[in-house]
Computed example of a mutant assay.
Amino acid sequence: MQTRGIDLSWAPSTCTLPTTEQPLRLAEFDDLFARHVRQVRRVDATHLWLALTGGPEVAATAAGLAARETECCRFFTFELQIGDGALALGVSTGPAHADVLAALADRATALVGPAGS
């Protein structure tokens, strides 16, 4: 499905976010990826880590986005790690949704900003 030029075909049918709100959520992830992700690391098919730049404001943004995403896509688990001057967001899912996680990782990799280059 495409909405306003944004391909939403990778969004699983189990997502309960209303279709009209999906492009907005995708834009939020895109903004996080482009502005604050410096590295995307796939641990395995069901787990990835996003190394983030920034401080408390970015941590709050990532935490808020993760909390809202788990309301509609309960198959995702997010873990925010803050320590030793580093900030990272872990994302995991079960094997049944590994393709959705792969799409999220591919999108993040494509949008990594200059800090990740």
Score class of each variant (00 low, 15 high):
25 R>D: 08
38 R>N: 04
80 L>K: 09
21 E>Y: 14
53 T>H: 09
10 W>V: 07
13 S>I: 11
91 V>A: 14
115 A>F: 00
81 Q>D: 12
63 A>P: 02
74 R>A: 14
74 R>W: 04
113 G>F: 00
89 L>H: 08
21 E>D: 14
68 R>L: 11
87 L>T: 07
24 L>P: 00
62 A>Y: 04
116 G>C: 08
25 R>V: 12
47 H>D: 12
51 A>L: 10
9 S>T: 15
38 R>V: 12
115 A>V: 02
73 C>P: 00
65 L>P: 06
91 V>N: 02
1 M>P: 15
52 L>A: 07
86 A>R: 13
13 S>L: 13
13 S>Q: 13
111 L>F: 07
95 P>R: 10
113 G>R: 01
94 G>K: 07
32 L>A: 04
74 R>T: 12
41 R>D: 09
37 V>M: 04
38 R>G: 11
104 L>N: 02
49 W>R: 07
90 G>M: 05
106 D>E: 15
49 W>S: 04
81 Q>I: 01
86 A>Q: 13
83 G>W: 00
102 A>N: 12
5 G>S: 11
37 V>P: 09
53 T>W: 01
37 V>K: 02
74 R>F: 03
116 G>R: 03
1 M>N: 11
68 R>F: 05
18 P>A: 06
43 V>C: 07
32 L>E: 01
32 L>G: 08
99 D>L: 12
38 R>S: 13
42 R>E: 13
23 P>R: 02
9 S>E: 10
79 E>M: 07
